[in-house]
Design a protein around this nucleic acid. Sequence first.
DNA 1: TAGCGAGATGTTACAACATATCATTTATGT
DNA 2: ACATAAATGATATGTTGTAACATCTCGCTA
Lengths: 153, 153
Amino acid sequence: MNNIDTIIEHAEQNCKSHGSRLTTKRKQVLSLLVQTSKALSAYDLIDLFVKENGEKIPAMSVYRILDFLEAEHLVHKLKLANKYIACSHITCKHDHGVPQFLICSVCNVVKEITVNKSTINELNQSVEKAGFKLVSPQLEINCICNDCLATAA
Amino acid sequence: MNNIDTIIEHAEQNCKSHGSRLTTKRKQVLSLLVQTSKALSAYDLIDLFVKENGEKIPAMSVYRILDFLEAEHLVHKLKLANKYIACSHITCKHDHGVPQFLICSVCNVVKEITVNKSTINELNQSVEKAGFKLVSPQLEINCICNDCLATAA
DNA sequence: TAGCGAGATGTTACAACATATCATTTATGT
DNA sequence: ACATAAATGATATGTTGTAACATCTCGCTA
């Protein structure tokens, strides 16, 4: 039993505990995301799915499964990149601060960083004052990574 | 000469001053964005363009014009919503702090708020430490507005 | 002022991301 | 075992954005 199986197992128990089902297909898709630990598009997942499982999966199913996994807080959709990643909470029990996603707008690489909690709290206060609510304390931040910056110059 | 004409005129001078041309089509598109002061998708602009000017415009042209206007810092692309807005700097000469965009993920309404400069600086430091660079100090923040929150409940 | 060249626009086709709709299959409780 | 609800399949289509190549227009220079 390797680490990924443990994670999937854990996710399944989580689902079961409140009456939802982590079916085979859903496990397969989640597993792909957990294994790569990178952000993947729905169509990346379709391709990977065939490679890993020797079986096709319709786009519709992948989107439905991703919706389900999002609702279960097992994956996170990065709207800036139209990509999906396994939620870091699956593998990590304790918060070490508030994770934020840095997304390189050139090469689409995604990096998760930790930001001072007080900084996020300040931001949150400004947001609430404006009559909005943060969807998630995990911001998607549009950046350029140093590699791309160097290449462009 | 109304306010919008003044803005367009000003933008045109700006372009001229460094050798780029704010052509008729570009003015028409910019004008649509300045008038509505809301975030519009490229295809919203195509529809509006026909209504306002009684003349069709191809998607390709709109995208090219938006790229141009972005490069001129006359419009800003909201990647979270795949929409475009007139840059607030067109109408406002002085910075009143650092503007941030709050985007309601349900109804897509966009609100520009001001956040404490020190908060942004702290965030920026975390980003740089991770080897990334903010594309713009203007973050796009994925939120839910109170109206949608109330409706959902 | 004719015509050259760069930049702007038109046209067509298509790629990538996502959803609507309705049919079929599978799982679960009684 | 059967009724029901949930999950998945299949097909079509919507939305956002780009590639590639043709044509036009403006401003410069000979």
